[in-house]
């Protein structure tokens, strides 16, 4: 029987050498591997007639031959059939490619949450251009000409005296120019600063809120911020306002939340203070109202801002802001939303 194997091998080599086109090659394939009358197929069928003593050796010889035939046919195929040369062999036993469901980016998820909270309270959603003029980004916000925020070091200036907005506050101005009070708006969007380290990215996202009407007080501001922070971080959160300075509000404040890691008893995340900084806020400066033609004697308003990355970092315990912008699926896939 072994000699039969050798014989078929010689015959095959001869036949294959004689095959000069794809059709001839196909005929060789059928002669040896054909299902019904293929010589190798027959040989395998004969296997059961072989006495058990020699069966293993014979089986191995047949399989070796089969491997040789398949390999040689494939090589010939690559040679004779144009275009098939570089194609990897298709392994039909591999598992299929799964279409994995996508998810929103963590920043998009937090943005959606913030939008929802304010839409629920009757705010409108506003937006403005990312490339701004000096007027909207600085002047109308009562930021004087020599204010450090205007430095080349902090702001990306582009051609034609334009700049990439450094905060979402210009949207306040654009909205007030379009509308008479009462105004109740939030704006979310990208902002740009020349700053890059573990907690600063040259591109990041902010939320801006503005409420203007007759009789708006600091108490409204405080209540709004407390409600917002509790919606985001949970019912037990308390807020604290500290006097601060931003040219477009007076009085101005920074607001903190009770530490979400230790509950306010003091830990390394809040540097022992029991509070975590959230953002800036205040009562709209009368000079800002004058720029947009609102009567500061008639209307009062509050404004606030905060960084969206900051909220996402606190919510998910992320300590490097740059992770949001690297688009590494190992990071992003942890936020199935």
């Amino acid at each position: 029987m072994q000699s039969r194997v050798h014989e078929i091998r010689r015959e095959f080599d001869r036949d294959l050498a004689g095959a000069r086109d794809p059709e001839a090659l196909e005929r060789v394939r059928a002669r040896y591997l054909g299902r019904r009358a293929g010589l190798l197929t027959d040989l395998l069928r004969d296997l059961r007639e072989v006495p058990s003593a020699g069966r293993a050796a014979f089986g191995k010889a047949v399989n070796d031959l089969k491997a040789h035939v398949e390999e040689a046919l494939e090589a010939a195929q690559a040679r004779l059939v144009p275009g098939s040369a570089r194609e990897a062999p298709i392994d039909l036993t591999l598992p299929g490619r799964v279409q994995r469901p996508g998810a929103s980016h963590p920043i998009t998820q937090v943005s959606a949450l913030i939008e929802e909270i304010f839409l629920e309270m009757g705010y409108t959603l506003e937006s403005g251009p990312e490339v701004e003029t000096d007027f909207y980004n600085f002047e109308a916000l009562n930021i004087p000409a020599h204010h450090p925020a205007r430095d080349m070091q902090d702001t990306f200036y582009v051609e034609g005296g334009l700049l990439l907005r450094t905060h979402t506050s210009p949207v306040q101005i654009r909205t007030m120019q379009k509308r008479r009070p009462p105004v109740r708006m939030v704006a979310l969007g990208r902002v740009f600063r020349r700053d890059s380290d573990i907690t600063h990215s040259p591109v990041f996202h902010q939320v801006e809120g503005l409420v203007v009407a007759e009789g708006i007080t600091f108490a409204h501001l405080k209540g709004t911020l407390a409600h917002f922070c509790r919606k985001v971080f949970g019912k037990g959160i308390t807020i604290r306002l500290r006097p601060s300075y931003f040219p477009f509000v007076e009085p101005g404040a920074e607001y903190d939340i009770s530490c979400i890691f230790c509950g306010g008893s003091g830990c390394s995340r809040c540097k022992g203070t029991g509070y975590i900084e959230m953002g800036g806020a205040g009562m709209v400066h009368p000079a800002v109202f004058e720029k947009v033609g609102y009567d500061p004697e008639l209307f009062t308003g509050f404004a606030f801002g905060l960084g969206i990355e900051r909220i996402a970092m606190l919510k998910h315990g992320i300590d490097d802001i740059r992770l949001f912008f690297e688009n590494d699926l190992r990071f992003l896939s942890q936020f199935p939303g």
């Binding site: 450090p148 500290r242 006097p243 601060s244 300075y245 920074e254 540097k271």
Partner: peptide
């Protein structure tokens, strides 16, 4: 801090307390 001079930290040095206040540009 509550009056607009936010304190960043406090340490004791040779029997004296040393405050670290963040004095903003308007003050």
């Amino acid at each position: 801090t509550a009056a607009g001079l936010p304190m960043d930290g406090i340490e004791t040095r040779d029997g004296d307390a040393v405050y670290d206040f963040d004095i903003l540009t308007n003050r």
